[in-house]
């Protein structure tokens, strides 16, 4: 080929390469396997039982693997955990104790952080106390292999319980160490870059080992899911933790320049999260309906945390008047948010 022809071909190839990043028809939120009702059906459908774990997408399969791993191989029936105020609870501890005894004594404990983040994820981490052997459950979870009283298979059942990991009802719940689940989260998000829960929960586990890596992981999640309010909330939480790590004994001091800079980043993330959340959250009457499947309890908890932290940080490191305006705006959409109401009543 002549030189001019080479240039033409290379020019065309360059054009194709430039267009390539614009082609993302598979960039969308959710999907059938993330719909609560559809997931429920999958877990109970005859086809699901026949096809086992291959019934769902690859990332769902990895997610189930994390569950098995964290429960020492004991397979639990998909379940909803007991009701908890999750992130809001953690936030309230942070703020209320601050109010009473001064913030220096009330750094956000890692345990709280953990509870918060792990509680996002209902099925995988249970009560989320990794490494806490023998942490008890307030309720009884059913294992896939039934107990002797509920098993019609007699000696076959006995053998099944003996050779497979199994846990008797009422026995203390144990959750395995975290480090080895990290590759599973990496794989599930590679398999499905729109698996927000994978990024959210994965970032929690990764940040325990390497905060920088967790931050990169979340950045990737946000690049693939720019409209996910959960991921902005998560990144805000990481910033919050980073701010604590900069203070003495994990304390937060807004006058500390370094901490303040990080808190401002956290504030921006919480406010972005709250703004995105308000765009997708259904009306309050729908959220209140127990039978609705549009908005899960976990999403509502995240929503509460995002709005509360957004107002709280605006109050502390931003403009108190703006904080009040935000609190009013959020309260209008979430009239049941007690923490916000309280903040509004207290004023700046």
């Amino acid at each position: 080929m002549k030189k001019g022809e080479y240039i033409k071909v290379l020019g065309l190839w360059l054009l194709v390469a430039l267009i390539s990043p614009q082609v993302k028809p598979r960039r969308y939120e959710g999907g059938l396997s993330k719909n609560i009702q559809a997931k429920e059906e999958m877990n109970h459908s005859a086809l699901g039982i026949v096809l086992g774990e291959f019934r769902t997408s690859l990332s769902d399969m990895f997610y189930m693997q994390t569950e098995n791993f964290l429960h020492y191989g004991v397979a639990f029936v998909p379940h909803e955990h007991e009701k908890h105020s999750e992130a809001s609870e953690m936030v309230s501890e942070w703020t209320e104790v601050d109010d009473e005894a001064g913030e220096d004594e009330h750094a956000m404990h890692e345990g709280h952080d953990h509870e918060h983040i792990v509680d996002h994820d209902e099925d995988v981490h249970g009560e989320g106390h990794e490494g806490h052997e023998g942490h008890g459950h307030e309720h009884e979870e059913l294992t896939v292999i039934p107990s002797a009283e509920h098993d019609f298979r007699a000696w076959v059942g006995e053998m099944h319980r003996a050779i497979k990991p199994w846990q008797a009802p009422g026995e203390a719940h144990r959750v395995a160490s975290d480090a080895e689940v990290v590759p599973l989260f990496r794989m599930m998000t590679l398999a499905d870059p729109h698996y927000v829960k994978g990024y959210q929960v994965g970032a929690y586990w990764i940040q325990q080992l390497d905060a920088e890596a967790a931050s990169k992981f979340l950045a990737e999640g946000l690049q693939n899911n720019p409209d996910s309010f959960e991921l902005y909330l998560m990144r805000g939480m990481l910033h919050l933790k980073q701010a604590r790590s900069l203070g003495e004994k994990g304390q937060i001091n807004e006058d500390n320049v370094e901490q303040r800079a990080v808190l401002l980043k956290a504030k921006a993330d919480f406010q972005k999260s709250a703004a995105l959340m308000l765009q997708v959250r259904p009306a309050q009457e729908i959220v209140d309906d127990e039978d609705q499947i549009l908005w899960s309890e976990v999403q509502e908890t995240d929503a509460m945390a995002a709005t509360h932290l957004s107002v709280l940080l605006e109050q502390r490191v931003g403009d108190p008047e703006q904080a009040k305006r935000l609190a009013k705006e959020y309260s209008a959409a979430m009239p049941d948010h007690k923490k916000l109401t309280k903040l509004l009543q207290e004023g700046p």
């Binding site: 390469a17 390539s20 999907g31």
Partner: peptide, 18 residues
């Protein structure tokens, strides 16, 4: 980006995901 991404224009999964 200069590599051919045949899978990127497969809309079947998006379609069945509703």
């Amino acid at each position: 980006n200069a590599l051919p991404r045949f899978g990127s224009v497969d809309l079947a999964t998006r379609f069945t995901d509703g």
